[in-house]
Computed example of a mutant assay.
Amino acid sequence: MRTIATSTLNAGGQVLGIIPSFLKNMGLALDGLTETIETTNMDERKEEMLRQSDAFIVLPGGFGTYEEFTTMLSWSQINIHQKPIALFNINGYYDDIVAMLQKTIDAGFAPAENLSLFIDATSIEGIFDGFNHFHHELPYKYVN
Protein backbone atom coordinates (compact mmCIF):
# COMPACT_ATOMS: atom_id res chain seq x y z
CA MET A 1 0.00 0.00 0.00
CA ARG A 2 2.83 2.37 0.85
CA THR A 3 4.46 1.96 -2.57
CA ILE A 4 1.19 2.59 -4.42
CA ALA A 5 0.35 5.60 -2.24
CA THR A 6 3.81 7.12 -2.68
CA SER A 7 3.80 6.52 -6.44
CA THR A 8 0.34 8.06 -6.75
CA LEU A 9 1.37 11.15 -4.79
CA ASN A 10 4.60 11.49 -6.80
CA ALA A 11 2.53 11.40 -10.00
CA GLY A 12 0.34 14.23 -8.72
CA GLY A 13 -2.58 12.08 -7.61
CA GLN A 14 -4.56 12.17 -4.41
CA VAL A 15 -4.46 9.48 -1.71
CA LEU A 16 -6.91 8.91 1.11
CA GLY A 17 -5.52 6.80 3.94
CA ILE A 18 -7.77 5.00 6.41
CA ILE A 19 -5.88 3.66 9.40
CA PRO A 20 -6.86 2.40 12.84
CA SER A 21 -5.34 4.21 15.82
CA PHE A 22 -3.29 1.25 16.98
CA LEU A 23 -1.48 1.01 13.63
CA LYS A 24 -0.93 4.77 13.57
CA ASN A 25 0.50 4.56 17.10
CA MET A 26 2.92 1.90 15.85
CA GLY A 27 4.25 4.46 13.37
CA LEU A 28 2.71 2.83 10.31
CA ALA A 29 0.84 5.89 9.00
CA LEU A 30 2.27 7.44 5.87
CA ASP A 31 2.86 11.19 6.11
CA GLY A 32 1.93 13.51 3.28
CA LEU A 33 -1.31 11.87 2.18
CA THR A 34 -4.03 14.07 0.75
CA GLU A 35 -6.26 13.03 3.65
CA THR A 36 -6.03 10.55 6.51
CA ILE A 37 -9.00 9.15 8.39
CA GLU A 38 -8.21 7.54 11.73
CA THR A 39 -10.54 4.81 12.98
CA THR A 40 -10.79 3.09 16.34
CA ASN A 41 -10.30 -0.46 15.00
CA MET A 42 -10.07 -2.62 11.88
CA ASP A 43 -13.83 -3.19 11.63
CA GLU A 44 -14.45 0.56 11.62
CA ARG A 45 -11.70 0.87 8.99
CA LYS A 46 -13.53 -1.54 6.67
CA GLU A 47 -16.79 0.32 7.19
CA GLU A 48 -15.06 3.60 6.32
CA MET A 49 -13.41 2.01 3.28
CA LEU A 50 -16.87 0.95 2.13
CA ARG A 51 -18.24 4.48 2.59
CA GLN A 52 -15.33 6.12 0.75
CA SER A 53 -15.02 3.68 -2.17
CA ASP A 54 -16.76 3.37 -5.52
CA ALA A 55 -15.14 -0.01 -6.19
CA PHE A 56 -12.47 -2.32 -4.77
CA ILE A 57 -9.30 -3.58 -6.41
CA VAL A 58 -7.67 -6.35 -4.41
CA LEU A 59 -3.94 -6.47 -5.06
CA PRO A 60 -1.80 -9.45 -4.09
CA GLY A 61 -1.37 -9.34 -0.33
CA GLY A 62 -1.47 -11.26 2.90
CA PHE A 63 -3.99 -12.36 5.49
CA GLY A 64 -5.41 -8.86 6.03
CA THR A 65 -6.00 -8.50 2.29
CA TYR A 66 -7.81 -11.85 2.18
CA GLU A 67 -9.95 -10.83 5.13
CA GLU A 68 -10.88 -7.50 3.56
CA PHE A 69 -11.72 -9.20 0.24
CA THR A 70 -13.96 -11.79 1.87
CA THR A 71 -15.64 -9.15 4.01
CA MET A 72 -16.51 -7.03 0.98
CA LEU A 73 -17.62 -10.16 -0.92
CA SER A 74 -19.79 -11.29 1.98
CA TRP A 75 -21.28 -7.81 2.37
CA SER A 76 -22.04 -7.80 -1.36
CA GLN A 77 -23.88 -11.13 -1.19
CA ILE A 78 -26.18 -9.80 1.54
CA ASN A 79 -26.66 -6.46 -0.25
CA ILE A 80 -24.83 -4.19 2.18
CA HIS A 81 -23.20 -2.78 -0.95
CA GLN A 82 -23.44 -3.22 -4.72
CA LYS A 83 -19.93 -2.07 -5.63
CA PRO A 84 -17.65 -4.00 -7.96
CA ILE A 85 -14.79 -5.98 -6.46
CA ALA A 86 -11.82 -6.96 -8.64
CA LEU A 87 -9.16 -9.48 -7.73
CA PHE A 88 -6.01 -8.31 -9.52
CA ASN A 89 -4.87 -11.86 -10.20
CA ILE A 90 -1.29 -11.12 -11.21
CA ASN A 91 0.61 -14.25 -12.33
CA GLY A 92 -2.18 -16.45 -10.95
CA TYR A 93 -1.71 -15.14 -7.40
CA TYR A 94 -5.41 -15.56 -6.59
CA ASP A 95 -6.04 -18.76 -8.56
CA ASP A 96 -6.26 -20.83 -5.37
CA ILE A 97 -8.75 -18.44 -3.76
CA VAL A 98 -10.91 -18.48 -6.89
CA ALA A 99 -10.71 -22.29 -6.86
CA MET A 100 -11.70 -22.32 -3.17
CA LEU A 101 -14.72 -20.12 -3.92
CA GLN A 102 -15.70 -22.51 -6.73
CA LYS A 103 -15.29 -25.43 -4.32
CA THR A 104 -17.60 -23.63 -1.87
CA ILE A 105 -20.24 -23.43 -4.59
CA ASP A 106 -19.67 -27.03 -5.72
CA ALA A 107 -20.16 -28.19 -2.12
CA GLY A 108 -23.45 -26.32 -1.90
CA PHE A 109 -22.41 -23.69 0.62
CA ALA A 110 -23.04 -20.74 -1.71
CA PRO A 111 -25.08 -20.16 -4.87
CA ALA A 112 -23.24 -20.17 -8.20
CA GLU A 113 -24.36 -16.57 -8.79
CA ASN A 114 -21.93 -15.44 -6.09
CA LEU A 115 -19.10 -15.79 -8.59
CA SER A 116 -20.55 -12.79 -10.44
CA LEU A 117 -20.04 -10.61 -7.35
CA PHE A 118 -16.32 -10.23 -8.10
CA ILE A 119 -14.10 -9.83 -11.14
CA ASP A 120 -11.11 -12.14 -11.62
CA ALA A 121 -8.75 -10.01 -13.72
CA THR A 122 -5.16 -10.53 -14.82
CA SER A 123 -4.60 -7.01 -16.18
CA ILE A 124 -5.54 -3.39 -15.51
CA GLU A 125 -7.56 -3.47 -18.73
CA GLY A 126 -9.41 -6.54 -17.45
CA ILE A 127 -10.25 -4.74 -14.21
CA PHE A 128 -11.68 -1.69 -15.98
CA ASP A 129 -13.51 -3.83 -18.52
CA GLY A 130 -15.00 -5.77 -15.61
CA PHE A 131 -15.98 -2.53 -13.88
CA ASN A 132 -17.61 -1.23 -17.07
CA HIS A 133 -19.69 -4.41 -17.43
CA PHE A 134 -20.36 -5.03 -13.74
CA HIS A 135 -23.95 -5.38 -12.68
CA HIS A 136 -24.65 -6.36 -9.07
CA GLU A 137 -27.11 -9.21 -9.03
CA LEU A 138 -28.22 -10.16 -5.59
CA PRO A 139 -28.12 -13.94 -5.26
CA TYR A 140 -30.48 -15.57 -2.87
CA LYS A 141 -27.85 -16.66 -0.39
CA TYR A 142 -30.14 -18.77 1.75
CA VAL A 143 -31.14 -21.37 -0.84
CA ASN A 144 -28.56 -23.94 0.24
Rank of each mutant, 00 (worst) to 15 (best):
residue 74 S to R: 14
residue 8 T to C: 12
residue 15 V to P: 07
residue 21 S to E: 14
residue 57 I to F: 02
residue 142 Y to M: 04
residue 117 L to D: 00
residue 75 W to D: 00
residue 61 G to I: 02
residue 88 F to W: 08
residue 49 M to F: 13
residue 69 F to I: 10
residue 53 S to H: 04
residue 83 K to C: 01
residue 123 S to F: 06
residue 102 Q to E: 10
residue 78 I to A: 01
residue 45 R to S: 14
residue 113 E to H: 09
residue 33 L to N: 03
residue 63 F to H: 13
residue 9 L to T: 06
residue 132 N to M: 10
residue 60 P to Q: 07
residue 132 N to V: 04
residue 18 I to V: 14
residue 128 F to D: 13
residue 63 F to G: 12
residue 115 L to T: 11
residue 62 G to R: 04
residue 66 Y to S: 15
residue 46 K to E: 05
residue 100 M to C: 13
residue 39 T to Q: 06
residue 32 G to I: 07
residue 47 E to Y: 10
residue 124 I to K: 13
residue 56 F to N: 03
residue 60 P to G: 06
residue 114 N to D: 05
residue 19 I to G: 09
residue 116 S to C: 08
residue 76 S to A: 09
residue 119 I to L: 06
residue 12 G to D: 03
residue 94 Y to E: 05
residue 128 F to T: 09
residue 48 E to C: 12
residue 52 Q to H: 15
residue 58 V to P: 00
residue 7 S to T: 11
residue 34 T to S: 12
residue 49 M to G: 06
residue 35 E to C: 05
residue 78 I to H: 04
residue 111 P to D: 03
residue 142 Y to H: 08
residue 41 N to G: 02
residue 42 M to N: 10
residue 27 G to I: 05
residue 86 A to P: 00
residue 41 N to V: 00
residue 78 I to E: 00
residue 28 L to N: 10
residue 69 F to N: 01
residue 53 S to A: 07
residue 84 P to W: 02
residue 79 N to H: 05
residue 21 S to L: 09
residue 137 E to M: 08
residue 93 Y to S: 01
residue 68 E to G: 05
residue 33 L to H: 07
residue 90 I to F: 15
residue 125 E to K: 14
residue 82 Q to C: 09
residue 90 I to C: 11
residue 110 A to R: 01
residue 88 F to T: 05
residue 129 D to S: 13
